[in-house]
């Protein structure tokens, strides 16, 4: 059952100009989170995507109240600071860390009972372990669980107090495909019950399956944010083909006529051409008309709409170009990222 989360404010999380620095001020330190900002509405599932080291976990730990921001603010349930108001916030939040440990000599049942004894209004222990599919493993010591089962136990504890707000930091890492799908089912159920969820993941499929909105983090900043459609729409579609011998990209119609930019694929076979376009239908039509008029066959023709994966990879590739490559912080998509 969803409890009231705030006083008339529909945002459960409000993040403003959030910074997290490791180490001293100046050259010796490192800003893992660099001025991010976003809001998460009640009952929403908001995903933070990013490459390793993008700053997802560093950011989420600030939201969870496990660390103090170097600068900026986090407001939960309309009025609470997660560090200062820890006692008021914790009964309403659940957390599944990327790496969370348990005393390994306790059994599953003992671990759940221990957590329940320190949780306001917990689910019955039997219900909690059944929810995550560990009902048959209650008498097994934590040290004898598989990695995936430990993650399930972690999820059981995170949801034990029926939280209004749930933080899931890479919840399916280490799980087999069945476990991953089971976890997605649980997450969908919790969301359907009204739980607000912040999910960090580096599995794009996970974000596509679960998220209402997402943010792609890169080098401590939010590089793109919005719905999956919003993000994908900001990235061009691709038309790829191989030109016959004797023809070069210069023989193609003018890029302006194609409404595309032309790039040869350096790693691909000779004559391979890739056109990036925001109007895939127009570009494809123009190229095919040109090929018919010229009487040439285009081999390995591949028209592909932009996907979240492509958008993600384009953002991630900027890292290879150097961490300062996107120092402006955003790529223009979405509206919530920090200035």
């Amino acid at each position: 059952m969803l409890r009231m989360t705030n006083d008339g404010n529909s945002n459960v999380i409000e993040v403003t100009d959030l910074w997290r620095r490791y180490g001293p001020p100046g050259p010796g330190g490192f800003d893992a989170v660099r001025g991010i900002g976003f809001t998460v509405g009640r009952g929403e599932l908001y995903a933070l995507l990013g490459t390793n080291g993008a700053g997802k976990t560093s950011a989420v730990e600030l939201l969870e109240g496990l660390a103090r921001p170097t600068r900026g603010t986090v407001t939960l349930f309309g009025r609470f600071d997660p560090v200062r108001d820890r006692r008021r916030v914790r009964p309403r939040t659940g957390v599944m860390l990327q790496r969370g440990g348990f005393p390994t000599d306790l059994t599953v049942a003992e671990t759940v009972r221990m957590w329940a004894s320190c949780t306001t209004d917990p689910r019955p222990a039997a219900e909690a372990v059944a929810l995550v599919g560990l009902a048959a493993r209650t008498d097994v010591a934590v040290k004898n669980l598989s990695g995936g089962e430990v993650r399930r136990l972690d999820l059981a504890l995170a949801t034990l107090g029926r939280p209004d707000l749930l933080f899931l930091d890479e919840p399916t890492t280490g799980m087999d495909p069945e476990g991953r799908h089971d976890t997605w089912r649980i997450i969908r159920r919790l969301r359907a019950e009204g739980t607000t969820i912040v999910l960090t993941t580096h599995y794009l499929e996970e974000a596509e399956q679960l998220a209402d909105r997402l943010a792609v983090m890169h080098a401590g900043r939010i590089a793109a944010t919005g719905t999956i459609s919003d993000i994908v729409a900001e990235h061009p579609s691709t038309l790829a083909f191989r030109l016959p011998a004797g023809l070069t990209p210069a023989d193609l119609p003018h890029p302006a006529d194609l409404r595309a930019s032309v790039a040869t694929a350096p790693a691909g076979p000779a004559g391979r051409v890739e056109l990036a376009t925001d109007d895939l239908q127009h570009t494809t039509t123009e190229v095919l008309l040109w090929a018919r008029a010229k009487g040439v066959a285009l081999h390995q023709l591949d028209a592909r709409s932009a996907s979240l994966e492509e958008a993600f990879l384009r953002i991630a590739r900027r890292r290879a170009d150097g961490p300062g490559a996107d120092d402006t912080g955003t790529d223009g998509t979405g509206t919530e990222q920090a200035a």
Binding site: E64, L66, R87, R90, P91, V95, L97, R99, G100, G101, F102, P103, T104, W115, C118, T119, T120, D154, L157, A158, G161
Partner: peptide
């Protein structure tokens, strides 16, 4: 407990 992230896990709750 610190090295095995048990303390960090405990801090995420009401304790």
């Amino acid at each position: 407990r610190r090295e095995e992230y048990v303390l960090k896990r405990q801090r995420t709750g009401e304790i």
